Computed example of a mutant assay.
Amino acid sequence: MRLREIRESQNLSVPKLVELSGVPRRTIQDIEKRGDCLVSTALKLAKALGVTLDELCSEKQD
């Protein structure tokens, strides 16, 4: 899960991503720590970030 990497590359704070996605702050923090989440949550985050689900869920790009 590349959530933190993508969020930071877009200069988005966690509170701003909460606003854009409707996903609770704690959930975003947990996803960034654990690296996994429900597909429904991942879809909301991908849409808010303007990336595909595949881009969001893929392993880190080298």
Rank of each mutant, 00 (worst) to 15 (best):
L3V: 05
G50D: 13
R25I: 06
P15A: 08
R26A: 08
A46D: 14
N11S: 13
I28A: 14
D30S: 12
S13M: 07
K47P: 01
S58R: 14
L49T: 05
L53M: 13
Q10I: 03
Q61G: 04
P24W: 04
G22W: 09
V18K: 00
L43H: 02
S13D: 06
L17C: 11
I31W: 00
I31M: 02
E19W: 08
R26C: 04
L49P: 04
L49M: 12
I6D: 03
D30Y: 11
V14Q: 15
I28E: 09
K47T: 07
K44V: 08
L17E: 11
S13A: 10
S58E: 06
E32P: 01
T27S: 07
D62L: 09
K33S: 13
Q61C: 11
L49R: 07
S40W: 00
R2E: 00
D62W: 10
L20F: 12
A48L: 07
V39F: 00
L56Q: 02
C57G: 14
I28M: 09
A48Y: 14
K16C: 04
V51S: 13
V39E: 00
C57Q: 14
E32C: 01
P24R: 06
S13W: 05
K47F: 10
D36K: 15
R4F: 07
S13E: 03
A42S: 07
R2L: 03
C37H: 02
Q29R: 13
P24I: 06
K60W: 14
K16Y: 02
K33I: 02
R4S: 08
T27G: 00
K60S: 15
V39C: 04
L43W: 06
I28W: 10
G50R: 06
G35E: 13
A48M: 11
R2P: 01
S21R: 11
L45A: 12
D62A: 15
L3E: 00
R34G: 01
G35P: 02
T41C: 02
L56V: 09
K60F: 14
T52Y: 02
L38G: 02
D54S: 10
V39W: 01
E8W: 02
E8L: 10
T27I: 04
S40T: 09
E8K: 12
E59G: 06
I6N: 04
V39N: 01
I28F: 10
K60Q: 11
D62I: 13
V18P: 04
S9F: 15
C37S: 15
R26S: 10
G35F: 12
R26M: 07
L49S: 05
D36M: 11
R4C: 07
C57H: 03
Q29P: 01
P24L: 03
G35D: 05
R7S: 05
Q10H: 03
V18N: 08
E19V: 09
V18R: 15
P24D: 11
G22T: 06
P15Y: 13
L38E: 12
S40P: 00
S21K: 07
D54Y: 10
L20G: 10
P24G: 05
K47M: 04
A42T: 01
T27H: 00
S9T: 12
Q29V: 06
I6L: 14
K33C: 04
A46R: 03
Q10G: 02
